[in-house]
Amino acid sequence: MQHALLPTMRRLAALALCALLSLAFVGCASEEPAAQTQPQTLEIGENAGDVYALSLSNSSGKSVVSMAVKLPGDDSFSANLMSSDAHLKDGEDAIVYIPRQASDDGTYVVDLKVVFGDGGVSVLHHLDLEEFSAATLLLNGKIGYVTYQGKTANRMVSTLDLQTYYYNLEDPTAAARDEAEEEEEKRRLEKLEEDLKATDEQQSADASASSDGTKATTEENEQTRVTTDDTQGMDIEDDPLEVSHEDSGED
């Protein structure tokens, strides 16, 4: 009887061991960290036909909510290349598809209008897409510009000076207005510094006056005490009653 039960017991033990090993495997698998999904690169524009695929990194400090392009020969900007719910946040990357359309002189220079989430608008003029395939979007005050590795120059190129020129050219009062705003801010800071200085001086003067008043009061009290002591001494020395009494005794 015992010999008959041995195979059955062995099978049960083997099944239990398999079950334990399966549970251990499942437990180890559940402890593995979940794979982190990389954020998808935003695609802007239509990837169809002959297009440039511009890799654009947003380092402007603001979110971009709209982009439009003015191709060579066009009089106005295109419709928004971004979908209505798309946002290119600061620090994120995008692929911008721009139709490859040459001008009469064979160049591929375009203008790119960028609208930010706070309502600010920057127009990046005269971008030669034959010169670069990747760029970084930046802001200097109200002026948007890009930096890129130039193919012809074989170095990093910044369009800040060029965009500043166009910015002032489009709005002749822009430079004067910006300068006026800077001067107003400078005057505001100077006035604030003057007010703080005047407050400190007034507090020092009040503290000095309080100290002088306390000193004067102390000196007056000291003078009064000395005068009182002198007067009391004279009264005791020259007491007429005491003198009269001594004279009476001698008689």
Rank of each mutant, 00 (worst) to 15 (best):
L21N: 07
A48E: 13
R10A: 13
D90C: 08
H125D: 07
A35N: 06
E220Q: 14
R177T: 14
L169V: 02
E184K: 13
G119H: 03
S211K: 14
D251P: 01
S122F: 07
A94W: 00
V26H: 06
L21I: 09
L88R: 03
Y165K: 07
A153F: 00
A176T: 08
A198D: 13
L160Y: 08
A180M: 10
S66A: 15
T173V: 05
S76I: 01
T164D: 01
Y52S: 02
D235I: 11
R10Q: 14
H3C: 01
D85G: 00
A205L: 15
S55V: 08
N154D: 13
A14L: 12
L12N: 11
V64N: 04
D200S: 12
L162E: 12
V110H: 06
G73N: 09
K186T: 13
N140M: 02
G144H: 08
R177W: 06
V226C: 02
E43H: 13
V69L: 10
T41K: 15
Q163F: 02
L137M: 07
P72C: 04
A24R: 08
T159W: 00
S158C: 05
G120E: 14
D178Y: 01
G61L: 05
Q36D: 12
I98D: 05
E194R: 15
E185T: 04
V109L: 08
D90I: 01
D128T: 02
Q223F: 06
L21T: 04
T227A: 15
Q223C: 01
L12G: 04
Y166M: 11
T147L: 01
H125T: 07
D93H: 10
A13Y: 00
H245Q: 09
V109I: 14
C28S: 10
D235E: 12
V110R: 00
A174F: 11
V157C: 07
L6W: 01
C18L: 14
F132Y: 08
A35Y: 05
H126N: 13
D111G: 06
G249R: 12
E183T: 09
V51W: 03
V110W: 01
Q36F: 02
G117S: 15
M1Q: 10
G144M: 06
E242V: 12
L5K: 12
D50K: 04
K70L: 09
Y167Q: 04
E182D: 11
A16T: 11
T37M: 06
P172G: 04
D75L: 12
S84E: 13
S204R: 14
P72Q: 11
P172H: 04
L162V: 07
K186F: 12
K151L: 05
G233Q: 14
R155H: 07
K70I: 00
E182I: 12
S244L: 12
D238E: 04
K89N: 14
P33I: 05
D212Y: 08
D247W: 11
S30K: 12
A176I: 06
L241I: 05
L12M: 15
H3M: 10
